[in-house]
Design a protein around this nucleic acid. Sequence first.
DNA 1: GAGTAATTTAATAGAGCTATTAAATGCAAA
DNA 2: TTTGCATTTAATAGCTCTATTAAATTACTC
Lengths: 207, 207
Amino acid sequence: MINPDSNTEHTILEAAEKLFLEKGFALTSTTEIARVAGCNQALVHYYFRTKENLFNSVFEKKARMIANGLFQADRPGATFEEKLRLKIEDHFDMLRANPGLPFLIFNELLTNPDRLKKLRDNMLDVPKNVILPFKAELESEIAKGNIRSITVYDLLITIVSLNVLLFLASPILKIIADLDQQEIETLFDHRKQENVIIILQSLKNNI
Amino acid sequence: MINPDSNTEHTILEAAEKLFLEKGFALTSTTEIARVAGCNQALVHYYFRTKENLFNSVFEKKARMIANGLFQADRPGATFEEKLRLKIEDHFDMLRANPGLPFLIFNELLTNPDRLKKLRDNMLDVPKNVILPFKAELESEIAKGNIRSITVYDLLITIVSLNVLLFLASPILKIIADLDQQEIETLFDHRKQENVIIILQSLKNNI
DNA sequence: GAGTAATTTAATAGAGCTATTAAATGCAAA
DNA sequence: TTTGCATTTAATAGCTCTATTAAATTACTC
């Protein structure tokens, strides 16, 4: 075929992505990846040499996607409240489109300190590009007395906590509470609005 | 020694607990447990027969602890707000005393469906004993117009999200934001209060 | 169609893991 | 001191996994 973006390579990457997202790095074998991709196990190594390389391809692809999700196009005319609502909802939608991602990230970063340190070094520009502009807007609102005093880091931790834990826990919730896929989707719709309400209400100024 | 609660067995259990909490079931080998416990690898199997048994011993011990944490002694005189505050703080303190627990639970329940189903069957009485009494109080407050309309499940999801994700993410936060242990402890103190504020504010009725 | 390079396969080396076994050691009562 | 039982050790069977290799097959070029 002489590589018109080698279909096999792509198939392997997709199989790996599916399995890594389901079970993490350690519990996924190259043999299983090959089985899902419908090819010989040696081919996985032929295209990616090591399992580690293959994992990094998946991981970096996903990390890039998250980063893109954070660099949202800004809505210039909107009020702060409207901007914040959209930020929360965009973050929520990104997670909903990639529900296995929180598990993968937590699992790998917590069990593999090297990966964590490498990530930190690749992330050095995030504060400047993502956090600082938002920080300025937040502090302006606080100065105007529109919202209570809070750091941008606290607000971010709150958004991430409410949005991420839902997707992390939803496979467990699904079994424990015996929900079908339809009910899970309904829950997601509902929690998206609930998370917005919680955060907006929690910022109100009670002088 | 003829077993005055076999010290070796206990040492192995502690080593296993430490390692399982750090790295989960799959990444912890009985060889490594033996190394940390300072004994021969075969001894791990002599006392617990299988790695699975050993893991269950650790897991059940922790699960029992969590359950005890949920069955709080009630404060009969307190207002609903005060009771809720204490519930959030107790939950937070339990996690703080066992910061590795959320990782262990998520990791094992998400990668091992059997364990999840077994847990569900052991948990059938939790709704009745823990949720229902709280549900009654919550609905009474809503009826009185003291707080906005919300289900007890939403409130619980919010509490768990805010409290759990902090401890799940703190090892990552520690590296990314380059915090020392003192700064982490300060962050925990602060977030405990912040989580209470967020939840109480989010329940306010805005008629 | 021959030749060449890319792709795919089967086979396996080498490492690590769990669990078992048989033998060695420690201890306490008879 | 011997006997019996609990504990500990060394050795290893049997398995799975990653990665490599050499050989086979396919695709493309001339």
